[in-house]
Design a protein around this nucleic acid. Structure first.
Length: 391
DNA sequence: GATCCACGGGAATACACGGATG
DNA sequence: CATCCGTGTATTCCCGTGGATC
């Protein structure tokens, strides 16, 4: 046998031993092409969007449901598919046998987690409509809006915009969002997605429909977990009983269920095992705070804030006894090129928005106002792994 | 030169405590 | 006893500046 063959065989064997085959399919923030078990929700959204198949715009709408109910999964998957429909500018090649369908509106998906400023909002819409890229600097917000109006002015069909994560906590308040919608041309229809029930009053006045998405039923969530495990892990790595346990604990929240699956897999992998054990799942469940902030939100934070969190997850509990101490430990890291003041401000801001939590330390009261320690509102090992994977 | 927005930095305010005051 | 006040921290708030990009 030649050396190459020996190496290949070794590679294969080690490959077979690997527990985690694909982190992407385990990640609670990755959305799949075909979400499991949300057929009825797709149907209701398609009912609402039905006019687009005749080349018309649907009315505005609001999609709402609790955390981890699959709103983003469904809407991103749906819009990814709808974007392939023939539009005015991009028509399909007609076959002689098929009746021609009218060009559909364009489709845009905006995530308010990353698209926070007014500038970014209009730029995002414009970007979805044009081939060439839109500048990020050196051009005013008004100019972007002008170009957007110019671009849509000549369009007969218009555009449907999904605006995900409409939520005061995400940083854009409903009143401001309403003003941004008002700045769009008239041949635009939007589909706002949020948790709040009922819909924020500022937007409700402009929507005709609302679509409610419920929590995942128990068995469906088991299926979701099993489906992700089957594409992300070695065969037979996750027993059905453990999937059920994760699903029971997650209580209809797919984000938390997948976060727990990820944490359990990460733990087993670090231990060099190829199957998830009871204790992996137990430890994982223990690590996911409830309620937890979505990892999607954490990973949408500006790079330097994520860097601060990345350092934070590596600190001992003893280095997290006060905000000042935590700040010092983080800003001392060679990887961090921020002033202590900025690190501290980030920590307070992230506590304010619920990414981390400040817990007033009890006991020995010294002089002055008592300090508080920083606790996670997300599973730290999952964040660490996803961050290190470069997402 | 124009523009956006991340950073830095510091002022203003809140809080806890204990001692002073009415 | 209830309230006020001073001190020392913690926390919040605000805005100017400058880097990066076009």
């Amino acid at each position: 046998m030649d050396l190459d063959a020996r190496i290949r065989r070794r590679q294969r064997r080690n490959g077979d031993r690997r527990l985690v085959r694909n982190y992407e399919s385990l990640s609670p923030v990755a959305h799949v092409e075909e979400p499991t078990g949300r057929g009825p929700t797709f149907e209701r959204l398609l009912d609402h969007l039905d006019p687009v198949f005749d080349g018309n715009l649907p009315p505005n709408a609001y999609v709402h449901g609790p955390a981890g109910s699959g709103k983003s999964a469904v809407v991103t998957a749906l819009f990814a598919h709808l974007r392939r429909l023939p539009t005015e500018t991009r028509s399909v090649i007609q076959t002689s046998t098929r009746a021609t369908s009218p060009p559909s509106p364009a489709f845009a998906y905006l995530d308010l987690r990353t698209t926070t400023s007014e500038f970014a909002f209009y730029r995002g819409v414009l970007g979805a409509l044009t081939e060439e890229s839109v500048p990020e600097h050196g051009i005013s917000t008004d100019e972007v809006r002008r170009r957007l109006h110019a671009r849509l002015g000549g369009s007969r069909t218009g555009v449907v915009i999904a605006v995900d994560h409409v939520d005061t906590a995400e940083g854009v308040d409903p009143g401001e969002l309403r003003d941004r919608f008002a700045g769009l041309p008239s041949n635009v229809s939007w589909l706002a997605v949020g948790r709040e029930d009922p819909e924020p009053a500022e937007l409700a006045a402009y929507t005709a429909t609302s679509v409610r998405v419920g929590r995942y039923p128990r068995q469906t969530l088991v299926d979701v977990v099993m489906a992700r495990a089957s594409t992300g892990l070695a065969p037979q790595a996750l027993g059905h009983d453990l999937a059920r346990r994760v699903a029971d604990w997650a209580d209809g929240d797919a984000h938390d269920a997948l976060a727990a699956l990820f944490a359990a897999a990460d733990r087993a992998e670090r231990d060099g095992r190829t199957r998830l054990a009871d204790r992996d799942v137990a430890a994982a469940i223990d690590e996911v705070p409830r309620p937890s902030v979505s990892l999607g939100r954490v990973l949408a934070l500006p790079p330097n804030e994520q860097l601060v969190l990345r350092e934070l997850v590596d600190l001992d509990a003893s280095e997290r006894t006060s905000v000042t101490e935590t700040t010092d430990a983080i800003s001392a890291s060679p990887a961090v090129d921020l002033s202590a003041g900025t690190v501290k401000r980030y920590l307070y801001e992230m506590a304010e928005t619920g990414v981390v939590e400040r817990v007033r330390s009890e006991g020995e009261t010294g002089r002055g106002r008592p300090p508080s320690r920083i606790e996670f509102r997300f599973p730290p090992t999952v964040f660490r792994r996803l961050y290190d994977l470069g997402r």
